[in-house]
Design a protein around this nucleic acid. Structure first.
Lengths: 164, 164, 164, 164
DNA sequence: TAATAATCGAGACGGTACGTCTTGTCTTCGT
DNA sequence: ACGAAGACAAGACGTACCGTCTCGATTATTA
């Protein structure tokens, strides 16, 4: 529905009608649009961002970054996550929701674990995760063209070198 | 007003009343809340992110990053920018607006110019800017605690080393 | 419950909860609020309107009228009857119910029987009953102050004289 | 609309839609269904119940009573009045409204004035008005067949005789 | 005594009206 | 003439109650 008509036009009334369900039933299970989106994206995100290990640490990070870009720009769950991040800037309650959920934490932790051996100076995991994913996420959120494979590889290389 | 009552409660009706102005008059000048916010933040952003040159490239980047964190987390203009980014995830028209404006471009370009000499492998300016600012921006947008001075310095150091 | 919270606030849901009973159980026995009220008032009405014979026909009618006023203005069963009459103006099904029940018929017939000897020109019982009770009922239903004892006696006297 | 679909099905939502008007606009002018009905019936009532003087006092009252029966049983305004009386039994606020308006007072006062000369013992106007109209109104409200012309004349004759 | 049936309370369900709110447009009226 | 004030049609909001529908759990009844 988000993909079809956009977040703004996606009313709870509409969701209920589209689902052939009473409005109260929707409210019974989720109290805001944000909760619906969170539940809809949290599982798919974990799945979409699970990438296979690679021989080369740069390749490992690059593969992950590519999956992240694809998730954010093409998958419905990624759209939901972006909408959620958007809502969080307007509504403190959603901010808490988003802060607690941290959709990317598990997947970044996994890939960073794999390259830790080749990156002895890598900072604490939260910081490193932000260094890895932050530029890509911000690029997407600020509506700039998503990075190409080359740009992703360059970013991965910079980090691996910086973490030596 | 954004700071007082939050973005969601900030209706165009309310803006007009608060300004002691007819609703039509507001519509005459801006057609959406987003345009109002953009105009309210674009100038202040440039000003707030203009940082003095430092001797050391790491210190130079760190100073900039600290200004960026302060802007995003404490200044009204920064709040407006975040709200704007939020709205952009819901509304394609705002996405275009945000993409065109690129509030951070000028200031990142300036600081990156100053450290270029010490960072021979620095990528093209857009990519480097994202590497610099992206992690900080994402950390703020995802409602995680903003980085401390130490963490900012560590990030700057990683980049300078990665760009060698 | 009618007395406590009024007819409008008296929902079938509320009735069931107050009775500590499932909603379905209420529907099993009565299908509308009106049926519940009818059953609640029909017996009490007969009892409340049974008045002792008096020597004087005017006194006989007056006693009955006083009982009628008290029933309509103070007793729960009277409240229920008024609510029922109200509902009948909105809902044809209740109209039938009310028409069939005719809560006052038995008691007016009894008192009119007793005064018939002193009122040779009394019309057919239905008409006379309406002449007797109608003014009092209408006064109550139109929210005017209910008649005093003096006014009731005057009304009774008018009828007895008119029926000579 | 009352005539078409009945009082119960006549929702404010529906009224607004049928009038091609926003819901808020309806609420701006009237706050309840009852006020709408009152306004719709008060003028028509006065008009419908204005009857020409007759030579004979019994005929005068009978003509009035016939007009009253017709008003209550056939005219839309009469339907509205009955619905209003019904609502008054459920809602104290409407009770006040109905009590204040007293739709029949002016017309009964007029006809009673005309026959006063022939009815020296006629009680105070409010009481006499109830004696005149009450039986007819109650007969209609309790869903009994409305009185025929003969029955109306009989009732008028009883009163004139009782008021001698 | 154990299996079976009937009945109950609780409450979720699809609907739909409620009265409030904000939207963007369109008068009206006073300066 | 301009602009504030605010009426307007539209439609989503979240709540309440409607009457129907499963649920288990407690009774009764039967085997």
């Amino acid at each position: 529905m988000l993909v079809d008509i956009g977040y703004a036009a996606m009313t709870i009334k509409g969701i209920a009608e589209r689902a052939g369900v009473g409005r109260q039933t929707v409210y019974r299970w989720w109290s805001t649009k944000a909760e619906i989106l969170l539940e809809a994206s949290v599982i798919d995100a974990a799945e979409a961002l699970e990438t296979p290990a690679q021989d080369d640490p740069v390749a490992d990070l690059t593969t992950y970054l590519q999956a992240l870009v694809d998730f954010l720009t093409t998958s419905p769950a990624g759209m939901a996550y972006r909408a959620l991040l958007g809502e969080a800037q307007h509504d403190p309650a959603v901010q808490v929701l988003v802060g607690d959920a941290d959709l990317l934490a598990a997947s970044t932790a996994a890939v960073l674990d794999r390259v830790r051996a080749s990156a002895p100076a890598m900072p604490q995991v939260g910081l490193a995760a932000a260094q890895l994913a932050g530029p890509v996420v911000t690029t997407v959120l600020t509506a700039r063209p998503p990075w190409t494979a080359d740009q992703l590889r360059l970013h991965a290389a910079t980090l691996i070198k910086g973490w030596q």
